[in-house]
Simulated scan of single mutants.
Amino acid sequence: MYAIITLAAGLLFGLGLAYSEMTNPAVVIGFLDIFGDWNPSLIIVMASAIAVGMIGYVIKGKRLTPLLASKWQVPTLRNIDAKLIIGSSLFGIGWGISGYCPGPGLTALVNNPSEGFYFVAALIAGSGLHYFQTRITQK
């Protein structure tokens, strides 16, 4: 059942990305270009995502355990440190320059393979660097 729900959630997420045009870098860059040719259409996408998240937290507040797991997996850290600021800044800069974040970037492997390949390669390299850096600093 867990695999079926996970697949359905992934398909729904992918369809939402495609329908909202979040897989189109020009639309994303147009949304982020608030001082230029701004395209505010993704505000509805952002508001919808926030609403779904809020519903999830309401459900979490009313249930002791989730339907398909033994416990809730909710972030517990509340501090804002240099790693968070640097990581989120790098994510935002990369998103603003390329118009891709990880979900839409993976769809680019099909929609726009030449750009998608470079994005996914950089995503894997960055993730690998983080993984090895974390392992080295923990020893």
Rank of each mutant, 00 (worst) to 15 (best):
M1R: 07
A3H: 09
I4P: 11
I5V: 14
T6D: 09
L7V: 04
A8F: 05
A8K: 04
A9P: 01
L11N: 09
L11H: 07
L15Q: 04
G16W: 01
A18S: 10
Y19V: 10
S20I: 05
S20H: 00
E21D: 11
P25A: 08
P25Y: 04
V27A: 07
V28Y: 02
G30E: 00
G30R: 03
F35Y: 11
G36H: 05
D37T: 13
W38F: 14
W38M: 13
W38C: 10
S41P: 05
I43W: 13
A49T: 08
I50H: 00
I50E: 02
M54E: 11
M54W: 14
G56C: 09
Y57M: 12
Y57C: 00
Y57A: 06
V58R: 09
I59K: 14
K60A: 14
K60T: 13
G61Q: 13
K62L: 15
R63A: 08
L64C: 08
T65S: 12
P66A: 08
P66Q: 05
L67K: 13
L68G: 05
L68Q: 04
Q73I: 10
Q73P: 00
T76V: 12
L77T: 06
I80F: 15
I80K: 02
D81S: 06
L84T: 06
I86N: 06
G87V: 00
S88M: 08
F91C: 03
G92V: 08
I93E: 00
G94V: 00
W95A: 00
W95N: 01
I97Y: 08
S98G: 09
S98V: 04
G99F: 04
G103V: 06
G103Q: 02
T107D: 03
P113K: 04
P113T: 08
G116D: 03
G116L: 02
F119T: 08
F119W: 11
F119Q: 13
V120F: 10
A121I: 10
A121W: 05
A121E: 04
L123P: 01
L123I: 01
I124W: 03
I124K: 05
I124R: 04
A125Q: 00
G126A: 13
L129F: 12
Y131K: 11
F132D: 04
Q133L: 15
T134N: 11
I136C: 06
I136H: 12
Q138I: 10
Q138T: 10
Q138S: 14
Q138H: 15
K139D: 10
